[in-house]
Amino acid sequence: MNQASVRATTGRLQQPYRRLLRRRGSALRADDLDASHGTILYLEDITVSFDGFKALNALTLYVDAGELRCIIGPNGAGKTTMMDVITGKTRPDHGSAWFGQTIDLLALDEPEIAQSGIGRKFQRPTVFENHSVFENLELAMAGDRSPWKLLAAKLSGEQRDSIEQTLQLVGLKDRSGARAGSLSHGQKQWLEIGMLLMQRPRLLLVDEPVAGMTPQETERTAELLLSLAGERSVIVVEHDMDFVRSIARTVTVLHEGSVLAEGTIDQVQNDPRVVEVYLGE
């Protein structure tokens, strides 16, 4: 699929997204995120080791606000570990991680990071299998997360609309009441993307979004990711080079826990070090 056709479809999709995403969130929206310097994520000198093995080795990486960044690298390069550090699942031994100017990610735990505006889509689709598709989106919806509030929480008309819109967007409108566990693999991927959207994050981490998808589904995913960037920042980890080529503006290559190369897809592909890592040995 070529660049031009992606652009065309993107244009068509963009309108509803924008409307959906621009709506003012509730109090829980990360209002203290300050990306005024144009950079939304600062990872500096991050080291993570497991039993002597350095999964991340003094990794330094910056992501700009509104950017769509692709991260590639061979197995064991530290891609998933990096995601784990950003979302609070793994604490680095060393280094710093800031979300905008003001939010120190290393001082927060997973729910706090999620509430500050970072959403994550896992490699394997993880949706709540015993909940309906609708309920999955409802759970992900940005809003108050305190137990007491949720005991009496009722869906407002506005919230219901926003869920309906997302259902429409991810193409699951007619499966709204179905058990999420009964969806196909691709549908689960889409449901998860829908959940990510309901969270209204400022930074999306997307781990191998098109694994196991049909070509058509892959195409739609590419459109969706492209449409999301700009309004928010997106980091995509992907193995499928065709897919990366179809969406990437800037590509970062990780190798043995640190950045090996960074640039446009062509620059990166012509970098002899990258060639050696992928083809050498």
Partner: peptide, 11 residues
């Protein structure tokens, strides 16, 4: 059903 997933959406 998915404890860590629930954490990652902010609960």
């Amino acid at each position: 059903d998915a404890e860590s997933r629930t954490r990652f959406i902010g609960y």
